[in-house]
């Protein structure tokens, strides 16, 4: 007989509680229907959407209707500033989204290089500072830079979202060493964003103590996005439970027997020298 386990601890960002630690994106899906099914299967509660693909005019443009496929009562809509090349553009987009009635939460993305979509640390910090002052709940997408992560926490961001690998590469936790430092030093939730290509990557991120992950490409381009979303959901739960339980330490690769001259031999001096 198995004992019922308590559910994993909830994720709390800016005072709001979420059961799911899997955030999802809305790009790259083969159809709005496939996207809806994947969101459902993922169990996600936070969904990010690129403002450049949305209609912010309030006129419900049927050709820019991505927002109409996401139920705001069910998901927290997290607008992102993808397309912005600098702080001024990102701040403008965020204000526009807020005035269009979207939540005052913003996933701050500033990538001047459209090729690898790597975030600009300087412009991101400038925009974050401004948006926090204006009352936005700011979740900045950043490279896995521990100092930048601290600087952003200092100006009041609600989370940090360091990348595992460049967007859309599916290469997994390439920045693991830096991510470990960011997690160790964090005073806000760490959401690992970008580059997670397999459920095992997501599980590993949670196991190492990340508070959540954001996954888009790996789900959207799967042959069955809903099935892959479900797989990520299970992986995130598994990783979190493992983290809360505490993983047993692994033996180092190639561990050998004790050396003949132990390093602590000085604690046991030769009798003749006493």
């Amino acid at each position: 007989m198995t004992t019922p386990q308590p559910p994993p601890q909830p994720l709390v960002i800016a005072g709001r509680t979420f059961r799911s630690r899997l955030l999802t994106g809305t790009g790259k899906f083969p159809s709005p229907e496939a996207m809806r099914a994947a969101l459902e299967a993922s169990g996600t509660e936070i969904v990010t959407v690129a403002l450049r693909r949305a209609d912010l005019s309030g006129e419900h443009d049927p050709f820019a209707d991505i927002l109409t496929h996401i139920d705001p009562a069910r998901y927290l809509l997290l607008p992102n500033t993808s397309g912005a090349m600098n702080a001024a553009e990102a701040v403008r987009l965020a204000r526009l989204a807020a005035s269009a009635g979207l939540p005052k939460w913003i996933k701050l993305e500033i990538h001047p290089d459209p090729r690898h979509l790597l975030p600009d640390p300087i412009e991101t910090l400038l925009a974050a500072e401004q948006l926090v002052k204006e009352g936005f709940i700011v979740l900045p997408y950043i490279n896995a830079d521990p100092v930048l992560a601290k600087r952003l926490q200092d100006v009041g961001t609600a989370a940090v979202m360091p990348l595992a690998a460049p967007i859309g590469t599916n290469r997994g936790l390439e920045t693991r060493g830096q991510l470990e430092i960011i997690i160790e030093q964090a005073t806000v939730p760490v959401v690992i964003d970008a580059g997670l290509g397999a459920p095992s990557h997501a599980a590993a991120a949670l196991e190492m103590g990340a508070d959540a992950v954001l996954v888009n490409t790996a789900i959207a381009i799967a042959s069955d996005p809903a099935a892959m979303a479900h797989a990520f959901r299970l992986a995130v739960d598994a990783g979190r439970i493992a983290y809360e339980t505490g993983l047993a330490s692994a033996a180092p690769v190639g561990a050998k027997a004790s050396p003949t001259s132990p390093l602590t031999g000085f604690l046991r001096p030769e009798p003749a020298l006493r």
């Binding site: 083969p30 403002l51 450049r52 693909r53 949305a54 397309g83 987009l93 526009l96």
Partner: peptide
């Protein structure tokens, strides 16, 4: 393939 009509916003 999902046809994307709008991939840019004039506000940017």
């Amino acid at each position: 393939l999902d046809p994307i009509w709008k991939d840019w916003d004039a506000a940017i």
